[in-house]
Simulated assay, not measured.
Amino acid sequence: MTADSLTAAALLDQALVEEATKKSGLIWVRGPGPDAPSRVVWHVWHEGAACVVGDGPGEQPLTGLADGDSAVVTVRSKDKGGRLVSWAASVVELAPDSPAWEAAVAELKGKRLNAPDGEAMPARWARECRVLRLEPAGSTLPLPDHDLAEAPAPTRATTRRPIPAAVPRLLFGRRRKRK
């Protein structure tokens, strides 16, 4: 291959990673190591990297991701949910209240759904959470050939149980027949 074709292939890979990651609301992220679990996380694409927030109360877990580590990001299709592209990333933890942190949080804040504290969210993130940038590092990777599903992270939340049989009658009563 010539230098021009390598450059063109690298530019195509970069464009694929950026467009696919921008359009997808969720990505799978696997930390370093062969046995590291893949976690699904919500993110925003900001200034050439996927930015995520987590590891605080009520936020997504970012277990196994540390500043300076590498990670593998797998992007899904927003329409069909299938895997589009996998790419290597370098993990950069942003220092709270730094200019890069402020810019990333401004983007993340707009995408955070159901936040319990609204406008106070950035201050809580600065105190209790981590904001990470997953920066593309190199070309795309082969798509994983195995299931990326993992056991759910431990939580206090419980599953709804079936309602007792008598509840519908109590709530809606028996309908009286009209004469």
Rank of each mutant, 00 (worst) to 15 (best):
S77P: 03
K78H: 13
K78Q: 14
K78I: 08
D79R: 15
K80W: 07
K80E: 03
G81H: 11
G81V: 15
G82D: 14
R83K: 13
R83G: 07
R83E: 10
R83W: 04
L84I: 05
V85Q: 02
V85S: 04
S86I: 00
S86M: 02
A88L: 11
A88T: 12
A88S: 14
S90L: 06
V91Q: 10
V91D: 07
V92R: 15
E93D: 10
L94H: 12
A95Y: 00
A95W: 00
P96A: 10
P96T: 10
D97Q: 14
D97L: 14
S98N: 02
P99N: 02
P99K: 08
P99D: 13
A100N: 10
A100P: 00
A100E: 13
E102R: 10
E102C: 09
A103R: 12
A103G: 03
A103P: 00
A103S: 08
A103K: 09
A104W: 15
A104S: 15
A106F: 09
E107N: 03
L108G: 04
L108F: 12
K109P: 00
K109G: 04
K109Q: 09
K109A: 08
G110N: 06
R112H: 08
R112N: 06
L113A: 08
L113Q: 11
N114K: 11
N114D: 13
N114G: 11
N114H: 14
N114A: 15
A115I: 05
P116C: 05
P116T: 03
P116D: 10
D117I: 13
D117N: 05
D117M: 09
G118D: 02
G118W: 00
E119F: 02
E119L: 01
E119K: 10
A120K: 05
M121V: 05
M121T: 14
